[in-house]
Amino acid sequence: MADRPTVGQRLISWASRPPGRLYLPACTVAAGILVYSASFPGWNLITLGLGALTGGLLAAMGALRLGIALTVARPMILRYWLRWITAPLIAVGVIGVVLADLPLQARINASADALLEAGADIPDETTLELHGERVGLFNLESATVHDETMRFAVSGAGVLRTHGLAYSEEPLETDVFVPGHGNLVYAHIDGPWYVWLEY
């Protein structure tokens, strides 16, 4: 009767095989979760936590697997090099897309007409409670018009502080408190669109 393989032998056997049917799709799912989280102004706490946890575990597994494979199975890395570099390429792609604010820009562009229509009939210095109503691709808690600036409070937006979207045809000062806008700070996204952060 053959001896049962040890934990070390099992690790070597596992690492000697290239990433495959489960690992790479899992990396793609984790990437999708993070990109979706980045489509919220200020991210989304739940999806950010899930994506970061999943991505961190997958990255640790990939590093362990690669370290063992470099020690005992280098020919396998060279033979299946495309499968080995796929996960790092996914990670680099996600980082580039997120740093460029592309998920949020795409979501705003797809929702711009609906958002502007929602704010068009609101009188100045007025807040309309929306209670999570779907507008475009966003669920909104409220819409406010103040000093010719439309502000939208987005459900689930922000990790540590409340975030939302703002539309202003006049340029807004960014990274500072704007006089008359209370404890809000704006960050420019694209064109007349901004993200606001409440302190």
Rank of each mutant, 00 (worst) to 15 (best):
M1I: 13
M1P: 11
A2N: 13
R4C: 01
R4D: 05
T6M: 03
Q9Y: 12
L11N: 03
W14F: 13
W14D: 07
A15M: 09
S16P: 13
P18S: 06
Y23W: 10
L24G: 12
P25G: 00
A31K: 00
A31D: 04
G32F: 15
I33E: 07
I33S: 13
I33F: 12
V35G: 09
V35E: 12
S37R: 02
S37H: 06
F40P: 06
P41I: 06
P41E: 04
G42H: 14
G42Q: 07
W43A: 08
W43D: 07
N44I: 11
L45F: 14
I46L: 15
G49V: 10
L50V: 15
L50Y: 00
A52S: 00
G56K: 10
A59F: 08
A63E: 00
L66T: 11
I68V: 15
I68L: 09
A69R: 06
L70G: 03
T71D: 04
T71M: 13
V72T: 11
A73R: 00
A73W: 01
A73I: 00
M76Q: 13
I77C: 02
R79L: 12
W81Y: 06
L82H: 05
W84E: 04
W84R: 00
W84H: 00
A87P: 08
P88V: 02
I90W: 04
V92W: 09
V94N: 02
V94H: 04
V97N: 01
V97W: 13
V98Q: 04
V98M: 10
L99S: 06
D101W: 09
D101Y: 02
D101P: 02
Q105H: 02
Q105P: 03
Q105S: 13
A106V: 11
I108Q: 06
N109D: 15
S111P: 12
S111G: 11
A112Q: 15
L115N: 04
A118V: 13
G119I: 11
A120N: 14
D124W: 10
T127A: 08
L130I: 13
H131V: 04
E133M: 14
G136V: 01
G136A: 01
G136K: 05
F138W: 10
S142N: 00
A143Y: 09
A143T: 03
T144Q: 08
D147E: 12
D147Q: 15
E148D: 08
E148P: 00
T149I: 10
T149Y: 08
M150L: 15
M150G: 01
M150E: 02
R151T: 11
S155I: 14
L160K: 08
H163T: 07
L165N: 05
S168C: 07
E170I: 02
P171G: 01
P171F: 05
P171C: 05
E173G: 15
V176S: 04
F177N: 03
F177H: 09
V178F: 09
G180Q: 02
G180P: 13
H181D: 07
H181N: 05
L184F: 05
L184P: 07
V185G: 00
Y186Q: 14
Y186V: 10
H188G: 03
I189S: 13
I189F: 05
I189G: 13
D190R: 15
D190Q: 12
G191W: 02
W193Q: 04
Y194M: 12
Y194R: 06
L197D: 09
E198H: 08
E198D: 08
E198K: 11
